[in-house]
């Protein structure tokens, strides 16, 4: 290799020059400290190492994991485990390929737990406290009055209004003080979810057909805020 005599890195600076096996070991990361020290100083030997590195890189570029099954084929192996015969060709490859074994283990770890079988542990509960409100002129059907509640630093405003024919009761609300998304508002009656809706971008939500005795729950990723006082508010309407 190397026919670059006459170039600046043509001759070894500190003979004897490294033999081909030492250069190869250096490229493969298995050489002695003395060999690496020589390569640090000698541009001629370093140039030979670089040529070898490039050739090996080109060969790997064409050949690395050439016979490994695609991730889809590995997934099919996992599916086949439960639904049909395994592809013998792929199974044989995996048995002899540590890289595929580790890919398969990774895939198996992701599907190890059924996707949606066990609900998360019970949510930590925070009871929202009613806040004093400014005196109003009394509510009318067209302009419902708003009640305020607080849970830690979060503020909730709620208003009820009649709507539709036959008349139903609608709850409108807004949650402020959090940047959390993925919050769901639910009406709960006798411990069971009656209806739910996700909060919109502004933290607002609307729930229709509010039954007497319902409480409101806002579920955040790790806890829920419960507005029990909604029950008292509902008494005024039922």
């Amino acid at each position: 290799m190397g026919d670059d005599e006459g170039s600046t890195d043509g001759a070894c600076c500190c003979p004897p020059e490294l033999d081909e096996l030492d250069v190869l070991a250096a490229v493969d990361g298995e050489a002695s400290v003395a060999v690496y020290a020589h390569l640090e100083q000698c541009s001629a030997c370093a140039s030979r190492a670089q040529q070898l590195r490039t050739l090996q890189g080109q060969l790997r570029q064409q050949l690395f994991r050439l016979f490994c099954p695609s991730s889809d084929e590995l997934a099919a192996c996992i599916q086949a485990d439960t639904s049909g015969p395994l592809n013998a060709h792929i199974t044989n490859h995996i048995l002899g390929c540590p890289s595929c074994q580790s890919d398969l283990a990774l895939l198996a770890s992701i599907v190890a737990r059924p996707p949606h079988s066990t609900p998360p542990p019970p949510l930590h509960r925070v009871i929202a406290q009613p806040q004093p409100r400014a005196p109003t002129k009394g509510h009318t059907w067209s302009q419902p009055d708003t009640r305020l509640y607080r849970a830690g630093t979060l503020r909730i405003s709620l208003s009820l209004e009649r709507y539709g024919n036959p008349l139903g009761l609608r709850l409108r609300g807004t949650l402020r003080g959090t940047r959390q998304r993925a919050i769901t508002a639910s009406l709960i009656s006798s411990g069971r979810v009656i209806s739910s809706t996700p909060l919109d971008f502004y933290g607002s939500f609307t729930l229709n057909d509010v039954p007497n005795g319902a409480v409101l729950s806002l579920r955040l990723p790790t806890y829920e805020i419960v507005v029990e006082a909604l029950q008292h508010l509902l008494h005024e309407y039922y």
Partner: peptide, 30 residues
């Protein structure tokens, strides 16, 4: 359906890990 979606998620993770090991295996110029 969710099990299959889970497999798809696994496949994209594997492809990403493979791309990375590929990058580590080859010299920059190649």
């Amino acid at each position: 359906l969710l099990h299959y979606l889970q497999l798809c998620a696994g496949c994209v993770v594997i492809d990403s890990v493979r791309a990375q090991s590929w990058a580590e295996m080859l010299p920059e110029e190649t």
